[in-house]
Structure formats: C-alpha cells, structure tokens
Design a protein around this nucleic acid. Structure first.
Length: 479
RNA sequence: GUCCCCAUCGUCUAGUGGCCCAGGACUCGGGAUUUUCGAUCCCGCAACAGGGGUUCGACUCCCCUUGGGGACGCCA
C-alpha cells in the first residue's frame, strides 16, 4: 500500500508540543515508508480560525524540518488543502447521505437540545440526540422554516456494532447505541470536523490516519461515515497523548507549550524532534540520541507504547545540550548572536566570538543562556558577584597570589593555557599557596565569579591585556 | 453519569511466560580526575497499582477492583 500520511492542524492557535509531536510522527512514518506527507488546514471554524496562525504553523513546521509534499501553499493533485475552500464538496456528500436516508435535517436549536439532554441526564439517561427531527413531515419542516429556523444536517447513527483495528491500540469496539446522531453540516452550511475529515481523508487518499488518542472516541463516527459513503476505511493509528506533570492534558499552565517559544529560547529543532519522537516510542537499540536519519530509518508503530507520556522539560534540556555541543560551531555562533546582541554585547569580532561560544556552549541547556555564561568575556570591568567571592578575595593569601600573578604576567607575550599553568606553578612556589586558595582568587579577580569554564581557557581568551587590567583593578579595589 | 483508552523507578522507557530478586536514560546523591561550577568517567537511591485466576513457572495471558486519562459541541 502506498503510504500517505497527513497532518491536519486547525489554525486557531500556535503549533504546540502535542500537535508538533503528531506532525513529527506522521512525517517520520511517511518518510520511513517512502510515502507522502500531506498538510491540510482544518479551518472550518471561521470564528476561531485566523490566517496568521496558519502562517505561524507553517513557519514552525518548516523550522522543525517537516517539509510537506502537498498542502495549501504548495498545491498537489488532491487539493484544495484548506477546508474552507472545499465547502461544495462537503455539501455534495452531505446531500447524498440525505437522499439515501442516512442523514436528516434537524431544526432543533442548541438551547432546546441542551434542555432535553439535561432532562435525560436527570432521568438517568444518556445525553444523546433524541430523534426529535428524525421523522418530520414536509409540513412540519415548512413550519420550522417559516419560523426562521435554519436546519443542520445530522447523520443518523445506526444501532450496530462498530469495529476497527488500530495500529497501536489494537481492536476497538463501540456500540452505535451509545453514539448520538451528530451534526455533519452546520446551519451556516459549514461542515463539522467529523464530517470534513472523513471526506478529505478519503478524497486525499490518506492511507494512515495518525493522530492523538483523544480522537479515539470520534473514530467510530468516522468509520460509519467512511462506510456509508462507500469509501475505503484508512488505517487508524492513535498515538498516546502528551500530558503535563500532573498527568492532565498538556496546557499553558504546565510551562511553555508553543513550539515558537522553544525556537525563541534557542532550542535546536533536531533536539525537539528527537525528544518528542522518544515520547511513547523507543529505538530498539536503546539509544536516545537519534539523528533524523536514524529516526526515519527506525521509526514505526510496532515499538509504540499505548500509554500517555509526560512532557519533561529537564530531559529535553539535557538533549538540547547534547545537540548544542555537537552541532557545527559556526551554526551555534550564528544562532547565539541575537541573544548576545540583546544582552548588549559587542559581537563584531567574529574570531573572538567563536572562541567564546566554543568554550561556553557545553554549559547551556538552550541558547538564551549563552549571554550569562559569555558575560565574563565581554565585560569592561570586573564586579565581584557574591559575598562568598568577596570573602575569598579578601584573604591575605589571595592578595599575595594576585600580586604574584601580576608580576608573572609582566614578561609574558602570549598567554596560552600552558604558559598560564606555568605561571600558576611558580606562584605556588613563590607564595606557598596552593589548591583552591591559589586558583580561586585568580578566577574571581578575572571574572568576578567563582564558577566558569576552565581557567586556563578563560585566561587564553581574555588575553594578557585584559588579565592585567582586571587584576590591577581588583587589586586596587581590595588593597 | 455513559462510552473508550491506559497502568514497570519521581519522569521517559526496555521487557512480548523462564535470560528479570527487572535493564537503560533524565533528575537527584556520592566518588574520581590533586581549583569551583561544568564536562567526563565510576558508583548509588529508586518501579512491575491491588486482588483473583491460567500455568511447572508470571512484569509478561485472562478477569475484577482501584487509579489516571480522553470523549460525550452547529470545537478540532
């Protein structure tokens, strides 16, 4: 079977982590099987849909590297790919169901239905459509029309057992009697989600419907529609959802969920793709850092778990750090520049910048953290950041060390790590100070901090001049 | 309330009847590399929800309970 997978977002908001994962798995599955990946925009809800969200979703998908073979912006043989442009198609099929007696006009208002549902609930019954308009005479229909009511079209759910195979969940069975007759065409003529997906998936020849398992309970309705419309039923793949730390549906209160915010914080797309792929799925190798090529090669649904996974920012951070440290240095430099500029650092010296980024990139979870680590290489003067550091520096031995360091620095031409280590050795001999009490004062005097990259490396990047002036400066302040 | 799905360390997971008194990863704690943090390496803490079956033998199969999630819209 030719594989055609699809991602069908509704442009009612930014792409978030859950949707992105669905898109990634669809894309991975399509690539793995040498098939097509289709993008379809589900904008039947005019109220909530917005063009800017559609564009934003494109941007995020592209950033993640999920290119599509067919879609609203690139076209394709099964278009249009925007549901708002497919209205006539939905009408055509809705009327066919109407003519065949599989659907009916319903004149009930939402308020009336709500009242009846509540009453049914109070009686201990089910809140499902009660068939009020199922057998209306033409006179009754006309009367409603004269009242000014605009009908919807409802699909009549037969009382039969609905069964389908899900690639990850296995065999699923629903009873038609538990499913309410549902609206397929709204009073304004727009198709509802359950109807539009079926028509589109069928007409677009989608072979695998891969989506979050929150859609599992919609599936029997869709299966029914596929069958009554005479379409082939696609293979369903309901992937477990991503939950927040409290095990409820992932939302804003669980932290940042919009993909664009991850981009803006300096996460790498490949890290996000890798991490998200590993939620409810694992490589047979047991390895976790899986570059895109391996993901495509290894991904399928046989190793997909059935249970939901919790989104863990800590682990994402770890993985992003792994990618940041192994990515091409030039790329990381390039991506870091906006953050550094925002922090007010001069980044014109590309060589210097590259050295700085090279030594600090291993310490960040995401690029937004680069400036705070890089600060020590851009500051004009040193300010001691903590009381602990001030105390350390106030020690007599520290002053001795700093003075000795300044003396040693004098004749030096280029301050390489090796030269620096030599200097430290002779300071130790001269002053008798060693270990922590030898190294820490130098670090603090030079950077203002007790933490940072390897000191020999720091010194090398800073260069003799800056080291000299920083030491003099702190010496002047302290003594 | 009804229907559907799910159930291994705090988290992501391996495990498809014996290889498991359960393995890896993140986090956390400890140690090492004779400066801190970090990085790296090593070590450690930590789980099969409960109860019944089936079986010579269950984390693995079945049932029940409990717990969690999702869906019951003229949202998707």
């Amino acid at each position: 079977m030719k594989i055609r997978a699809r991602f069908a977002p509704s442009p009612t908001g930014y792409l978030h982590v859950g949707n992105a994962r669905t898109a990634i798995l669809n894309w991975l599955f399509a690539k793995h099987g040498g098939g097509q990946f289709v993008l379809r925009v589900e904008d039947t809800d005019v109220e909530r849909s917005a063009k800017e969200f559609e564009q934003a979703i494109y941007k995020d998908l592209r950033w993640l590297g999920l290119n599509w073979d067919e879609g609203p912006d690139v076209g394709g043989a099964f278009g249009p790919y925007r549901q708002s442009e497919r209205l006539e198609i939905y009408h055509k099929y809705a009327h066919r169901l109407l003519e065949e007696g599989k659907a009916f006009h319903c004149y009930c208002t939402q308020e009336e239905i709500e009242v009846r549902n509540k009453a049914a609930l109070a009686r201990g019954g089910q809140p499902k459509y009660d068939g009020h308009c199922l057998h209306l005479t033409n006179e009754q229909k006309q009367a409603y029309l004269d009242e000014g009511r605009r009908p919807v079209i409802r699909f009549h759910v037969p009382e039969e057992t609905i069964q389908f195979q899900d690639l990850v969940k296995g065999e699923i069975v629903f009873e038609g009697e538990n499913i309410s007759d549902f609206v397929i065409l709204r009073s304004d003529g727009a198709a509802t989600y359950n109807f539009a997906v079926v028509i589109d998936d069928a007409l677009m020849k989608i072979s695998h419907v891969i989506r979050g398992d929150d859609h599992l309970s919609n599936t029997p309705k869709q299966v029914l529609l596929f069958e009554r419309l005479g379409f082939d039923v696609p293979v369903f793949v309901h992937i477990p959802m991503i939950l927040g730390s409290d095990r409820s549906k992932l939302s804003k209160r669980h932290g940042i969920t919009a993909i664009r915010l991850y981009r803006e914080k300096g996460y790498l797309p490949e890290a996000l793709v890798n991490y998200l792929s590993l939620l409810s799925w694992s490589s047979e190798s047991g390895e976790e850092i899986l570059p895109l090529g391996r993901l495509i090669k290894e991904f399928d649904f046989t190793r997909m778990s059935k249970s939901a996974a919790i989104f863990d920012r800590e682990k994402l951070n770890w993985m992003n750090n792994r990618y940041i440290r192994t990515a091409a240095l030039e790329r990381i430099v390039e991506l870091s520049i906006p953050f550094l500029e925002k922090a007010g650092f001069r980044v014109s010296d590309r060589d210097y910048l590259t050295q700085v980024i090279d030594t600090v990139r291993g310490n960040v979870d995401y690029l937004e953290q680069i400036p705070e680590h890089a600060k020590i290489f851009f500051q004009k003067e040193v300010s001691i950041e903590s009381d602990e550091a001030k105390e350390m520096l106030a020690l007599d031995s520290s002053k001795q060390v700093c003075r000795a360091f300044l003396e040693e620095l004098g004749p030096v031409e280029t301050l390489s790590p090796e030269v620096f280590k030599q200097i430290m050795k002779s300071i130790q001999k001269k002053t008798g100070v060693k270990g922590k009490f030898l190294w820490m004062p130098v670090r603090i005097a030079l950077t203002g901090r007790m933490h940072g990259p390897e000191l020999p490396r720091v010194v090398e990047i800073l260069g003799k001049e800056k080291c000299e002036s920083f030491i003099k400066e702190t010496l002047g302040k302290q003594l």
